[in-house]
Amino acid sequence: MTENIFLITLVVLAIIALNTKKLRRAVVYLGVFSLVSSFVYLLYGAPDVAIAEAIIGSTITTVLYLVALRKYQVFSIYYTSNVNDQDIKRRKNNSAFLNNLEAFLIKREMEPQIIYSTNPIETILNQENFDLAIHHSEQDIQVYGCAEDYQLDAVEEYLLAYHGDLNIHLIRCAEGADNEA
């Protein structure tokens, strides 16, 4: 009976750790998974394997996953605009803004991937996995980002420092939105 509870727990944790969208949550789920699996090894009479699982599963893999997560580099930027493209000066200004942002991200050892989209901004916010969504309207630029993203603070600082003249509004979405961190 007790064994059954632990085994069901293991299956549930494995499925959830595979299906989660945020990688940091998967690290926590795998930590719980290794805790419970260590006790299951103990239940089936293998204390040596349980000690190995305790050391490797709960400490070393956690550190490895966190270091790997820090190096997770692809940064996808969605760009939409409802500005008329005839306005040459504004368009040039615009591409300079994007190029500078790209150069800044490359300097921070990330791989920016800019996707020009024709969908309205609401569709992107609801449906896509974005790190930054940039909406360029007549007067101002709205930058949407995930509030839990660690790079967002640096991006905000950079944008305010170098492009303060462009009317940039940075909007942080709630954590509940299903964006990939």
């Binding site: 805790l35 260590s38 103990l42 204390p47 349980a50 000690i51 305790a54 050391i55 709960s58």
Partner: peptide, 8 residues
Amino acid sequence: LLDVALVY
């Protein structure tokens, strides 16, 4: 088996 608990 208490050693496992100590490690944990």
